[in-house]
Computed example of a mutant assay.
Amino acid sequence: MPSPLILFLMIFFLLECTIGIIENSFIIIVLGREWVQCWTLLPGDMILASLSISRFFLQGAAVFSNFFSYFFLTSRKLYIDIFWNFANTVSFWFTTWLAVFYCVKISSFTHPIFLWLKWRISGFVPWLLLWSLVICILIFILSFVKTSLVFQLPVTGNYSEKTTFDDVIRAFQSHFLLPLQMFILLIPFLFFLASTILLISSLCRHLRNMQHRSAGPQHPSMQVHVTTVKSLFFFLILYALYVLPIIISLAAPISVCSSHYWVWEIVIYSGISIHSAFLILNSSKLRRALKKMLHYREAA
């Protein structure tokens, strides 16, 4: 039976993930209905729909994995963790491509590379999503093979064979799989960081140009750009709050029976829930659908 503190943290974590699942389900339904009607989506909506699908499964896997680990404490949970790692890595890459897409589309840089990307980025989106998915599937296969070997070979071996095999598995995990997981997580984070910094730099330069043209601080265009910069900076903080605890937990795992573990989980998944809410509120299409749904509920 969990202690009152851990029970409270569990309930808070469950509510947090439930909110995130509802938010991403809403995005999937709205964009999915548009895709069914038109058989196509805008590139930004395509990334957003893919991101919402990955986050839906990520948060579902997180809830199942955490509660399964606490109440059953079985090594078979490794298979659940494999699916969680897959959904987590996919979510990382899709979040990064969303930042890259908006960076290229909104930034006002005149460098030939940016101009070429601005012209081509829409056509690149399906390929970026596909290759990200392929990379994540390869990592998923490696993890699945490693886990399958853990469960199969020791059953037929003697004690010395088990010990040797356990050493091999630990060496494989510490010297190959763990560095690979960190590398796969850090690469999209660095892309996200670079895209956000470039976009904020571009928008700040645009604000300075407008000020030189005597545009007052209350000018509508100025207000839009200031809001965009604030939102991007906030998204960067949320993304960092999600990435850093995961990397730390990979390097130094915490027991699921500890209250610190559940605090880490709440911090990690708060970023996803808040970011999904911002994506809904910052999209005119999703905002209209939300207002229509709320108006329908009030009328009913």
Rank of each mutant, 00 (worst) to 15 (best):
F278V: 09
F140A: 03
L198V: 10
I135K: 03
A215M: 15
W35V: 13
S255D: 15
S259A: 06
L48M: 13
I21H: 02
R33L: 11
S231F: 05
K118S: 14
H275N: 09
N85E: 05
I28E: 00
L138D: 00
V267K: 05
A240R: 00
L244S: 12
S283Q: 02
A61P: 04
N282S: 11
W84A: 07
R287S: 10
N66H: 08
S273D: 02
S249L: 15
N282L: 11
V256M: 09
R208L: 15
L185C: 02
F235P: 01
I237L: 13
I268P: 01
N24D: 04
W35L: 15
K105Q: 14
V267A: 08
K77D: 08
V263A: 07
F144E: 10
F278R: 08
V134S: 05
V134Y: 05
K285E: 04
I121V: 14
I254W: 05
Q181D: 10
E16A: 00
A289G: 03
C136R: 02
I274A: 02
T147I: 06
W264A: 00
S69G: 12
F92D: 03
T89A: 14
I106H: 08
F234Y: 08
F26K: 06
K105E: 13
L199I: 04
Y242D: 07
G216K: 13
R76C: 02
G44Y: 04
L128E: 07
C136N: 14
F233R: 06
I187S: 04
A289R: 03
V150A: 06
P245W: 05
P253D: 07
I137K: 00
L42Q: 14
M46D: 10
S231R: 13
F68T: 12
D45A: 12
L244G: 05
L48I: 05
L115G: 11
K292E: 10
S174P: 00
T227Y: 08
P220E: 05
G44F: 07
W262V: 02
P126T: 06
V263F: 03
S283N: 10
L129G: 04
I266N: 11
L244P: 01
F191I: 10
G20R: 02
E161I: 14
H212L: 15
S276H: 03
E23R: 01
I247L: 15
A252Q: 15
S122G: 03
S258P: 07
P179F: 13
S108F: 08
F233H: 02
G44N: 10
S143F: 02
Q218R: 07
M46P: 01
F13S: 01
F189T: 12
G271D: 02
F83C: 09
T110G: 10
P188W: 08
T196Q: 13
I247P: 01
L244M: 14
L41C: 00
R170Q: 10
I139F: 04
T89Q: 14
L15Y: 03
P4H: 08
I247Y: 06
I280C: 02
I6Q: 06
L199Q: 09
W116K: 14
I184H: 11
M10E: 05
T227C: 04
P188D: 08
P2S: 11
L142H: 00
L153T: 12
K118N: 14
L115C: 12
R55V: 08
I280K: 01
S54N: 09
H219D: 15
F124A: 13
F101E: 10
L190F: 12
Y261K: 08
M210K: 12
P43A: 05
L7G: 03
K230E: 09
L153N: 06
C257H: 11
Q152I: 14
